[in-house]
């Protein structure tokens, strides 16, 4: 009768276990390299090999002692935060425009707004370099910010647009009808309703900017971000310091992504409930 009941009766145990095993393997495949890097970052040996040497924080100490790493980290963080804020603002504006207005060429508008992440990063990086150097903006933190906003804003737009699509279309006119001007409605209704998505977009765009390498490599010049610095290390020498940096960056990015995920799923489900029994 009920869907779940029938499923549990008809499901074969063998298939069940096989599917669980498959999921495990898939995760293993995805995360094994990162896990290895994580493990070796705490290993005392110079080269990654098994058996492992003793537990050691020496590579973290070496990284922490390197002023170039600190500079790269500072660049990354400053760029990431600024990019997150600007991208989220732009994304919100684009998403709200799509939600609120009907106009000729809206499909084109949407396609263009969502286009940048589909352009190969090498092409985008080259184009950015050519363009920014033409207007004398290449080779500093500002140029990385500009380039990253181009890459990140579409993500922010997509996330916020999804949230707006869950909003009861009567909510905004209801606020107007209760005496709120359009600006007041923006402040007291649209922004509070979209807040989980706005914060989610902020964290995701920061994470994208932290991890982005190719475009930053082209336009950063001497103000390298951390991923660009890591490549510099690699070209010089293979060092477990890279594992230490990698682990740090991974933990930071994952924290942001998980935060965004919590905001987007938990809060959203809660707000949908009232509209459900409308049908």
């Amino acid at each position: 009768m009920s869907g779940s009941g029938a499923e549990s009766i008809n499901r074969s145990r063998g298939v069940d276990w096989a599917l669980k095993g498959y999921i495990l393997l898939a995760y293993l495949f995805v995360f094994a390299p990162i896990a290895a890097s994580f493990v070796f970052s705490f290993n005392s040996d110079r080269f990654p090999s098994i058996p492992l040497g003793s537990f050691s924080l020496e590579w973290y100490e070496a990284v922490a002692a390197d002023p170039l790493v600190w500079q790269g980290l500072r660049n990354t963080l400053v760029v990431g935060v600024v990019v997150g804020v600007i991208s989220t603002l732009l994304g919100f504006g684009a998403a709200y425009t799509d939600y609120r207005y009907k106009f000729a060429g809206k499909q084109v508008y949407l396609a263009l707004a969502l286009l940048p992440p589909t352009i190969p990063v090498i092409i985008l990086g080259l184009a950015m370099l050519a363009y920014l150097s033409r207007i004398n903006l290449s080779g500093n933190a500002l140029s990385v910010i500009i380039a990253h906003v181009v890459v990140c804003a579409p993500f922010a737009m997509a996330i916020i647009r999804l949230r707006l699509s869950q909003m009861d279309p009567a909510l905004e006119p209801a606020a107007w009808n209760l005496g709120a001007s359009e600006w007041k409605t923006m402040r007291h209704v649209i922004v509070p309703f979209t807040k989980p998505a706005i914060l989610g977009a902020l964290f995701i765009t920061m994470a994208v900017s932290f991890d982005e390498f190719a475009v930053a490599w082209f336009v950063s010049g001497l103000n390298e971000t951390l991923p660009v610095k890591v490549l510099g290390f690699l070209q010089g020498q293979v060092s477990p310091r890279i594992n230490a940096i990698g682990t740090f960056v991974f933990v930071l990015s994952m924290t942001l992504v998980i935060l965004a995920q919590l905001l987007l799923s938990g809060k959203g489900a809660n707000d949908r409930a009232p509209a459900d029994d409308k049908e």
């Binding site: 909510l171 009808n177 001007s181 509070p192 009232p274």
Partner: peptide, 21 residues
């Protein structure tokens, strides 16, 4: 007169209550 300057409140079919309040 825009709707926010009129005193003509409306009860909506979906009720349109603010879920975040």
């Amino acid at each position: 007169l825009p709707t926010w300057s009129r005193d003509t409140p409306m009860v909506w079919q979906s009720l349109a209550l603010f879920p975040f309040l």
